[in-house]
Write a protein that binds this DNA or RNA. Structure first.
Length: 206
DNA sequence: TGCCAGGCCCTCTTTAGGGCCTT
């Protein structure tokens, strides 16, 4: 199945913990669709994981058990989110984390997706090598992106990730004269050792 | 706040260990 080359979904999960392999579930999904660098759609829904979340998660995310009581179950929300994704390629900050939860939650409802995942954390380690940290909040500050500080909610973090993503593309454009950067090039960059990105990007410059 | 898991990435490396990121 082909992907929409100019359309990306940047997503972020809030969850009960760090790994679906030990029984953790999603409690919120947030996402924005970027078309030609502009946010055209947003998705945000809480979902009831079927059990109480820990005090740590309540503090960390601001999502309380009370807020989840009336939320739809994960299966219903993820079904709608699979529709939202469509055939777009996907981005997340530390994508290996979000991909594990996306795969696990969609597997429960026998749904899948066909886009490819890319990771803003891996890209930032290569493009923003001077950043002291590559945590999302630090990259927002490093990039001089205006922020209300409302991190750790799914839509907010996906919006911030999208802004950091665009800053990185702008940086590539300014440094290498590349202003139409194919997703495949980003994929290649995130698999290239830091020392090798100049060679990869110079090879694409005209 | 994170000890949980897992992939990336660096180094005193590759026959390994540990920090960084995500919740």
């Amino acid at each position: 199945m082909s992907h929409r080359a100019d359309s990306l979904v940047i997503l972020d999960f809030e969850t009960t913990g760090l790994s679906p392999d030990v029984g953790d579930r999603a409690i919120e999904i947030g996402a924005v669709r970027l078309v030609n660098g502009e946010v055209t759609e947003r998705f945000q829904e809480l979902m009831n994981p079927g059990r109480r979340v820990s005090a740590f998660i309540e503090d960390y995310t601001g999502i309380s058990n009370e807020m989840l009581v009336d939320a739809d179950c994960c299966e219903s929300v993820m079904d709608r989110f699979a529709d939202f994704i469509g055939s777009d390629n996907l981005i997340a900050h530390n994508a290996s984390f979000d991909k594990r939860f996306l795969d696990a939650e969609l597997a429960r409802i026998n749904r899948t997706y066909c886009g490819d995942f890319s990771c803003s954390l891996l890209l930032s380690r290569r493009i923003f090598q001077d950043a002291h940290s590559h945590k999302l909040g630090e990259l927002v500050r490093f990039s001089n992106i205006e922020s209300s500080g409302g991190f750790h909610r799914a839509l907010y973090d996906s919006e911030m990730t999208a802004k950091v993503w665009m800053k990185m593309l702008e940086n590539i454009g300014e440094r290498y004269g590349l202003f139409d950067i194919p997703f495949e090039l980003i994929q290649k960059l995130t698999k290239t050792p830091k020392k090798g990105i100049d060679k990869v990007l110079s090879g694409y410059s005209c």
